[in-house]
Design a protein around this nucleic acid. Structure first.
Lengths: 243, 243
DNA sequence: GAGTGGTCTAGACCACCAA
DNA sequence: TGGTGGTCTAGACCACTCA
């Protein structure tokens, strides 16, 4: 198969990546599912197995697919244990792994403020759901979250659905709305606690807090969530790595 | 070539990775240098080009090597333009790219406190250099850094050497001591400015600051730098990505 | 045009898993 | 035992850079 025709040369495996991503967007394979074997995909796309392999390798490197030798290749899901810490970067300083408990404060329907609207590619004033919650470690409140998602993509979301769901919020988004978060960008500042945060987080007013603003993306790099977390970092840190 | 002898199976390309890394540790190829071509390396290690290729691919993914089509494969260096922002995650909120200016405050020889010693695999009290500096954007001081490096690895480091060096600190470490930083872990908290920080950063006492603790590693995942940055995040944010 | 990395293929064989 | 991903090879050819 020959697609080498400069200019605007695009490798075959890159085109395969796009085709696989399109199947993910279309929901042909859902989070947790196994996708067809490399040999099957090679036949389907009429390329060699090696080319499919390279496409899958890259998607696996982006944490979109997960390879398991002897079993198959799976669509990454936030319901898997290994995903629990992927988007939660706050950890105990003593290194003990602990997953926080969540207390839902409110779920309301609102008009998107300019700040989150522009980051979500919405018009200011577009309808969104606003979720507020409090995350606690060892029963001590540490993170106050405010989360905005477009109402159009999360039709029918309400308080009780979230409250009754046992897993993480992203796992909930997957199973109820078919929306999988695959990437996020965060901007972090140090701010003073205001009166509301101070009360909810059990800290004095003006306590320094980490303010973590996030935009999360689903397949095709489409932004679908904005959130702001205010975090009390006593005995906890935001942990990150760079290379 | 057959190395498939379970148990303790280790792929060939993984062994090649280790051999390349050892050459980097030994200084056979230094940051900025071109390493031999894939064909030459394949001959040297007596494996196929494809196997060398996979080893280099992984090292390139870790930002240890850099491939340039038509030119060769190079050892990553902090002297390259593309590296300027790799380990500097503080950026202007308005998105304008700006590289800070540095004012060196002091370079002293000290005994390692327990905190940094343990993270650098040194005995408490081991000899270190302590560098203090102030980074400014648009002439406004934003980041107060305290940096610890083992004296044994940075023999002869002094004030004037750093002051006269035109590039970044990591670029300086590379060119004068042959030590290349390839990876770092950071722990971030929100803290109050004390009197010293307040004065140097031109902020009131108790101003919330980002406290960024870093351990940086060189080839072979050897920790060689500890630093603590205190950062005034007005109109600036710490930016990070996850997937 | 020579040399480098980049793509694609075909085929053999190994490691791992489940039935 | 059969199916999956994982490794390794050999070879052909393309894209890019530089002299």
């Amino acid at each position: 198969m020959n697609i080498h025709s400069s200019p605007s040369f695009r490798p075959l495996y890159d085109q395969i990546k796009i085709l696989i991503t399109q199947s993910l967007i279309a929901g042909e394979w859902r989070p947790g599912d196994a996708i067809p074997s490399e040999i099957d995909l090679a036949a389907r796309f009429k390329v060699s197995q090696g080319t499919v392999r390279k496409a899958i390798d890259e998607l696996a490197a982006e944490n979109i697919l997960i390879r398991r030798q002897g079993k198959g290749t799976f669509v990454a899901s936030h319901s898997q244990e290994r995903a629990s810490t992927r988007f939660l970067r706050i950890a105990r300083d003593d290194g003990v792994a602990e997953y926080p408990t969540s207390r839902l404060l409110s779920v309301t329907r609102e008009r998107a403020p300019e700040a989150s609207a522009s980051l979500l590619d919405l018009r200011t004033g577009a309808s969104i759901f606003c979720i507020k919650r409090l995350l606690s470690f060892e029963g001590v409140p540490r993170i106050l979250d405010e989360i905005h998602v477009p109402a159009a993509s999360f039709k029918g979301l309400d308080d009780a659905m979230i409250r009754n769901y046992p897993g993480s919020l992203y796992s909930f988004f997957e199973s109820h709305f078919g929306i999988a978060m695959i990437r996020a960008e965060e901007h972090i500042k140090a701010v003073k606690a205001g009166p509301i945060e101070a009360e909810l987080l059990h800290v004095p007013q003006d306590q320094p807090l980490l303010r973590v603003d996030r935009v999360a993306f689903t397949y095709g790099d489409r932004p679908v969530e904005w959130r702001r977390g205010l975090c009390h970092t006593e005995r906890f840190s935001y942990v990150t790595e760079m290379s």
